[in-house]
Structures are given as structure tokens and as C-alpha cells.
Design a protein around this nucleic acid. Sequence first.
DNA 1: CTGATATCATTTGCATACGAATGAATTTGT
DNA 2: ACAAATTCATTCGTATGCAAATGATATCAG
Lengths: 158, 158
Amino acid sequence: MGWPQMSGEDNLLRLVEAADGDENDYHLQDQVGFILRKAHQRHVSIFASHIGDLTPPQFAALAKLYDIGETSQNQLGTLIAMDAATVKGVIDRLRARGLVEVSKHEVDKRRLLVNLTPEGREAIERLIPLARAITEETLAPLTAKEVATFLRLLAKIA
Amino acid sequence: MGWPQMSGEDNLLRLVEAADGDENDYHLQDQVGFILRKAHQRHVSIFASHIGDLTPPQFAALAKLYDIGETSQNQLGTLIAMDAATVKGVIDRLRARGLVEVSKHEVDKRRLLVNLTPEGREAIERLIPLARAITEETLAPLTAKEVATFLRLLAKIA
DNA sequence: CTGATATCATTTGCATACGAATGAATTTGT
DNA sequence: ACAAATTCATTCGTATGCAAATGATATCAG
């Protein structure tokens, strides 16, 4: 019989088939990687519309420093999921703007300690409410129950 | 009463609270943007472990050209969610490797037509099975039912 | 104690990703 | 038909993101 007159809502069907992998056609737009990339793009765009003068990685660095206080650049990178090369660039730019400051670790001379400046603390306290709005707008297409489900499953694959 | 002895699995609770926004603490690791970024990172890493000589955007370009045939660079960018500047770089690199070729549109002289070369066609046909394995591994932490739910919700916010 | 390992930070090179500006070509509105 | 607006492609600048190599420091094993 096959698939007689597939009509209406076939998106879900295609997504399930894409997950199955037992189809001959390959549809990029149904692959989790492609959709993940688009969802990330949309979120970054929403972020930029609310917080224009800071990128999500820069915000993440400030938010984590606000949360845990002074830490080494390396440890900070681990906590915000950035490799050493990436976190260095982020911290360099935040430092150039006076939002964080660095100092040498007295005991372990390999480590570079990073901390918020008073301006950085002001900035992150001002921005956190906006970040909540960004989260809300990103999740706006979902109902409250769907949000809970989505975040649970997303965390599983992250 | 408040929250007496929160114990055991509080991840879900924190995620729901994060979505609510009605908490005083801000936990970066519970924000959808941060988890989305990490999920995307994990997928790219899985992709690289299976397909080392091509990036996900490059693969997307080849897969879409395989799907729809010759198109303008601009149209291709729209279909694979890349802006004009990004798609140009991707096509330049694919062209340098002989996987795609470009030509001028005879009627509309603004357009640059892009198409697979025979080598590009061979490559994408060889890679699509690997791409299915990448999708599978990315979604491995989820059950089949969770996969269907997750893809449905992810598509909603993408 | 000391040689082998491991960790931390930096640097380089490459690849997205996007805003903004530019120029060429086309389409639209009147 | 023609000026205005739009579309397509390119270029520039900035910012992640990661692999690989390097140098400095610290830790470990024997």
C-alpha cells in the first residue's frame, strides 16, 4: 500500500522517519543537527535583539563569575563550556571593556585569575532580567508543559 | 514552608524554575540558550568524529544540492540557513576541493549558479549513511518516544 | 631528587556566523 | 520609460569555536 495521500501534518512523520534512518531519501531539514543549528541561530538572534552590546558567550562568562566569584581562566572555561583558546578571546574582550580584571595566582604561577570589576558586576545585575526575557521569548512557541519536557530532553543530549 | 530538604533529582525542578523566571538566583546551566549551545557543540563533535574532512555546513550544502540540483548561491543559503557572507565562504572551500562548481546565470546576471561536480555527488552519496549514524549517536541518550517528542519540540523553537 | 607527565595559558590557522557597506543587475511603481 | 526600491553577490570587520603546537609551571613515580 505504501503511503497513500500523505496530507496535512506530515512534519512529525518525517521527523520520526528521519530518526529511524530507514528511508531512502535524506532530508537535511529533518536532521537533528540541522534543526539544532537553526534553533541555536534563532536564540542568538533573540539574544542580540535584547542585549546588543554583549554576545551570549560574553554574557555566560560574566554570569558565571557573578555566580561563583573569582576563578582561573581555565576553570571558567570548563564551567561555561569553552575551550582554552575560545575563553581567552572572550576574557580579553571583556577585559578591554573593563568588565573583568585578571591577576596572577600567587601559589600556582600557571594560573590566571579572572574576576568581575565593579562595572562588570553592575552590568550583569542589569542584564540578568533581560536574560530571563530572552529565555522566555526563545521558548515562547512551547506551552509550559512542553517547555519542561523540552528542557529535560535537551539537557539529556547536551 | 518553602522547599524543605530538596533531595535527589532536582534537575527537572531547576529547569522548570528557570523557565518560570520567578526565582532570585540565575543559573546559567539551566538556561535554554546555554544548553542549546552545548547540545550543538556535542553534535558538531560527533559529526567530526564520523566525518573528519567536511564540516556540518559544508555537508549541508552538498546534501541540499544533491536534493534539489543546481541553484543560485543565494537560494542555497536560504535553504540551508546561512547568510550570504557565510554561504560564500562555504562554497568557495567546496569549490577549491572540486566538490561543487559555479557558473553564471544566463538570464539574471546577478546570480551565481552552484552545482555538484561528479566528485561532489560521489562524496555526498558516500557520506549520507555516515550522517544517519551521526543523527543516531546524537539522539542516543533518548528513547524512541523521546526522540519523536524532542524533534517535534525542537522544530517548534527553530 | 629527578625524569616523565600533566596542567595552564598562549598562539596560530582554519572555519563558521553575522552586521554593514558596496556595486551590479533586476524589478517595481508611476 | 525611468527613478526608486529590491535582489544578488562580494568584501570587511568582529566574534566564536576548535585542533595543534609551544612554553611555563606543577605534580607524580621510582
